[in-house]
Amino acid sequence: MTREPLSSLISRHNFDARRALGQHFLLDPAITTRIAELSAPLAGRHVVEVGPGPGGLTRSLIDSDAASVTAVEIDPRAVVVIRELQEEAPERLRLIEADATRLDLTTLCPAPRRIVANLPYNVATPLLIGWLRQAASWERLTLMFQLEVAERICAEPGSEHYGRLAVISQWCAVCSQIMRLPPGAFSPPPKVWSAVVELTPHPELPDIKLFRAMEQVTAAAFGQRRKMLRGALKGIGGERLLNTAGIDGSRRAETLGIAEFDRLARCHLAAPHRNEKQK
């Protein structure tokens, strides 16, 4: 089947990318096909795509052997375009017109589930954190970010990009950069490079209470990253917390590994003062 070129489709619908929505479209089918291939194996999997825009990646996903593709789109102009594509594969492509930041994606399709998306850059990080809270519900996430965000997700302790996002992401999943793209790969070109990150959730994952404890610990630790931990964590019982976890309070947040942050989060969750507040 011959499809209308995306550039022609965009022109026909007068569908210009909007900065307010963080839109940068992938129009090269070779690139979108490669992303779908990197997401493999998709056979028997139900894929959710957030922010399909004109549907470049959507086309490649419905051409894959995924069991189904669910596209979530907030822009009514893109909704019109994806509906045209839906006519091509009505049984395999589902369209949800909604704000993905306010939607529980796990309710959209059965397991095994995956997310494959070129994320709108202005909401990419909060979307990721929300999905990591539900990491047990996802088999794998294959996501496009600005390169700087991708580096922050995959950063190692002691590196310049290591921070809250690295700790929480790697605590929940195995994270790796699997593809980089220059600005010219997008329309319109962003000012920065982009990268695709693969996140495969760990077999054993934290419950929501422990996840929230980790969010509080990392927020305090990296909120004042130049301070020693005994000072940075003072607001959440720093010295006591560090002693319980067996961590030297003179260290700084960027020197701690994921396992050490896990200990801090578990000790914070178990702290008597915290349990009293929860009653």
Rank of each mutant, 00 (worst) to 15 (best):
L42G: 12
A43I: 12
R45M: 09
H46K: 13
V48Q: 02
E49Y: 03
V50T: 13
P54G: 02
P54H: 00
G55S: 08
D63N: 11
D63C: 01
D65A: 10
D65P: 11
A66H: 10
S68F: 02
V69T: 13
A71T: 04
A71N: 08
V72S: 09
E73S: 06
D75H: 10
D75Y: 08
D75K: 10
V79T: 15
V79C: 14
V80Y: 03
V80K: 15
E84I: 11
E87G: 15
E88F: 01
A89D: 10
L93V: 08
R94C: 04
L95S: 05
L95H: 03
I96G: 05
T101C: 11
L103M: 14
L103P: 13
L103I: 10
D104R: 15
T106Q: 12
T107E: 14
C109V: 15
P110G: 06
P110W: 00
P112E: 01
P112Q: 00
R114F: 00
I115K: 03
V116D: 06
N118F: 00
P120A: 07
N122L: 09
T125A: 08
T125H: 01
P126Y: 04
P126S: 10
L127G: 00
L128F: 01
I129F: 07
W131F: 04
R133M: 10
W138T: 05
L141T: 05
L141Y: 08
T142K: 11
Q146M: 11
Q146W: 10
R152S: 08
A155W: 08
E156D: 13
E156Q: 14
P157S: 09
P157N: 11
G158H: 10
